[in-house]
Structures are given as C-alpha cells and as structure tokens.
Design a protein around this nucleic acid. Structure first.
Lengths: 223, 223
DNA sequence: TCGGTGTCCTTTACTAGTAAAACACCTGCT
DNA sequence: AGCAGGTGTTTTACTAGTAAAGGACACCGA
C-alpha cells in the first residue's frame, strides 16, 4: 500500500527472511546481507546472475560468517532454507507491486484467485483452507471485498451456519485482468534462469514442498 | 508467541504464500491446495515425497486449476514462485518451533544472530539492514531483548545519535545453544533430497536470488 | 560561528494478522 | 422432544509489523 512503486526501496523490506538464524522467516526479516565488510558496497552492481555460475548472494555471505564463528557446524541447510526464505521475501515485496496497482493486497488476491480458479462458490472455511489463513482473516477480507463489490455471499439454505461466497462479474474481471500481468512480471524475474534450469528448479522445489506438506514427517523437529 | 507448541496446527498457517494468485506471499497466505475436488481428502496421508519422482504438491493442483480456467496463459512461473512462497511459509511455520521453545520469535533470533555472526557490535541501523526490517521494528525488538538481558547498548562517544548494540553472555549462549538445534531440524526437513540434489537446489536458488537481489533488473516489472 | 541539511534513532498512528471466546446452528442420542 | 456435543463463522483482544513524523545531533559551507 505504501510502496507501490515496485522499487525494492533499499532497506525497508516488508518482510525479511532469513539466514540470520538461518531458518527462514516469511513474515519478518532475517539478516543475511552484510557478509563481507558489513553492508555491501552499495554502489557495486552486485554480481550478475551469470547463467552458469552460481554467483554470490547475501546468503552466501551470511553462511560464511557463521562458518567463521562456528566452524564445526554444518551450515549446509542454510544454503537452501535461507535462500528460499529470502527469495520469498523479495518476490513478495516486488511482486505485490502489480497487485497494489489494482488496489489489492496479496491476501485479497489469493482469496479472489481461489474463487476464480476453482470456478465455483466456496465457503469461508474452504477459503481459509485454500488460502492458508485463519478463518478470522478470511472473515475480515470477505467483509472488505464484499464492500468493494468483488464478491458476494449467500447463505446456505440447508445449513444456516454456512455461507457461500462467489465472485461478482467485477471480481472475475479484476482477477482475469491482473493475472496475465502478474505472470508476465514473474517471467521477467525468472528470466535469469534458462528454461531448462527453471524446470529443474521447479522439480526440486516440488520435492521439497512435497516433503514439507507431508504433514507428518516434519511436525516434530529435532526434539 | 502464542502457539509455542510447535505443532503446525493444521489450517492456521501463520503466513501463507501462494499460488492463489500465483505470485507468492511470504506474509499472508495464498491458496493453492485444493486442486482436485476441492479441499484435500483430509484423511489421505498426502503423497509421500518419494525420493526421485517429483510428486504432486498443492502447487501442482493450483496450477492445474488455473490452466483449466485459462488454458491460454503460461502458468510456468507459478511452478517456481508459488513453490518458493509456499515452502517459505511452511518452513517458517515449522521452523519457528525450536525458536519458540527458547522463547524467541524468528525476528528476534535474526537480530541476535546478526550480532553473533558478525562478531562485533552493530548499530540499530546496521541491524535493520542485516535483518531486512524497518528501523522502527529494530527499536522495538531491541527494547524487549534488552529487558530480557540478551543484548546491551552503549552510546557512541563521538556521535551521540548512534548506539552500539552487543550481545550479553546470556544472549550469546542462547544463540549458540539454539543454532545447532535449528540446523539439525533443517537437515531433517531437507532429508527428502539427497545431497547432490540439495547442492543443485542451493545453486539454482542462488542464481534466482542473485537476480532478485540485483536491485536493478527487476525493479520495474512488466509495466 | 551559525544556519541548513542530512543522519540516526525513536515515537506515533495505524494495519493486518492471530488465538481464543462467543454465537448460531445442526445432528445424533436418549 | 430435548439436550450434548460438534461444526461453521464471527467477534474480541492483542501482537508485531510498517510509514511517516519528530527529536537530537553532526557536519559543512558561508
């Protein structure tokens, strides 16, 4: 809402991620830059994503720092998890720009998108599931989106606890209008990787995500 | 802070991500599950991360839905960006568990971690940079961490606007105590991928992150 | 030396999310 | 029928972040 100019804006990243601790924070901020001196040269054009060589990113710097302090620890996981988190943070920050131009937050777009792609009405709890957010959050968003005329709700005739939400024509048009723009932008972002590598990356992420989503298996960490 | 029981808690993901719109939200929530019917079987054990084949994750389902509704759009970017976001959300949710056991939020740990890995004092603004958060957020966190005796501050003698923050012994011990546990947990999470694939993934993410961090280059989306 | 300008940090006002309690309603059991 | 218990949704109270304004201070140039 504030920085809808799309520019990363230097140090005010909305949500950091991070390698600071090395895990990853999708919502807050990590700390991973300042690896070398402390604080990048700032003027240097930053290593180019030379197709082929994996260049030096902020995560690499952070990992280096940790290795110096704790040479005995295997910092391997940071290289993946830190990067996933950092990528997510930057993507979010940058990606939201096209949405904001349309006056939507990502969360709102996700909700509308869920309705659009399923093609049918959804109840608030289904939306919460689809959208990976709490029911309370869905309630709030629905309120706003309804006021803006993008969705409508009707009560279930059988079970009066239940509501059914559907897109209005305006809502559908909005989603359909934004989506191609979003995809176009995303292609730009991914352009640093050739299409073969993109497939590779998608496949690997799919495996990782599969593991993460396999509810059990990760629930209880080290413990 | 609230759910320090570590259990992912089903549908109350802290920050969703997502493929709903397809971009990715590190802070809110997306919508990508419910691809097939709508809403996963819920009882089904969810596809196992069979080592080798890229299984079917929630993102794949969402992408399928979009392709059905908009067969003309190239949904390729979603396969990567959606997964990055979703992974970040799940990692965060799960990973925070070990931290919470220690009574820290990720943001707090990131801050402490930045101090620990750089090995020297940092000013609040340096911490903000390291941590990818706003100065105001750092101020708040420092206040809390100081009260808890994990960090201390001293004023700069030359420039009285500046403060220097350093870890107390307790702070350092806390970080050093948590870090190995975090890494151990992360290795568990990544165990689904053999080490060769992990290297591959780290390399690809590094390229992507490089592109994202190369400030210019992505600033102006499609536009 | 003194004012303008910029920097560092904090404060203020506000937003968007969560967890848990509260509601309203269904459903199955007795 | 009537109630116990469960489910779908909303409400409440609160948290943690942001942006922007504010205060203190340094530094430069006249």
């Amino acid at each position: 809402m504030t920085a809808h100019n799309g520019r990363p804006e230097q140090g005010e990243a909305a949500s950091g991620e991070a390698v600071a601790g090395e895990a990853a924070a999708a919502r807050t901020a990590p700390g991973e830059a300042a690896a070398e001196g402390h604080g990048r040269p700032s003027s240097g054009p930053a290593p180019r994503p030379v197709p082929g060589a994996a260049r030096d990113d902020t995560v690499a710097g952070v990992v280096r720092q940790w290795r110096t302090v704790h040479p005995d620890l295997d910092t391997g996981p940071m290289e993946i998890i830190g990067r996933v988190n950092r990528c997510a943070a930057l993507l979010q920050q940058a990606e939201d720009a096209p949405l904001r131009r349309a006056g939507l937050s990502r969360a709102e777009f996700d909700l509308l998108g869920a309705l659009r792609r399923t093609g049918h009405e959804l109840t608030p709890s289904e939306l919460a599931r689809e959208t990976f957010s709490s029911g309370a959050a869905v309630t709030k968003r629905l309120k706003q989106l309804t006021e803006r005329g993008l969705v409508e709700r009707r009560g279930d005739t059988r079970d009066r606890r239940v509501a059914h939400v559907h897109l209005t024509d305006a809502g559908r048009d909005l989603v359909d209008g934004i989506l191609p723009e979003q995809l176009r932008y995303e292609r730009t972002v991914l352009a640093g990787l050739d299409s073969e590598r993109q497939d590779e990356l998608a496949g690997l992420l799919c495996m990782l995500l599969g593991r993460l989503e396999g509810r059990q298996g990760l629930a209880r960490p080290a413990r």
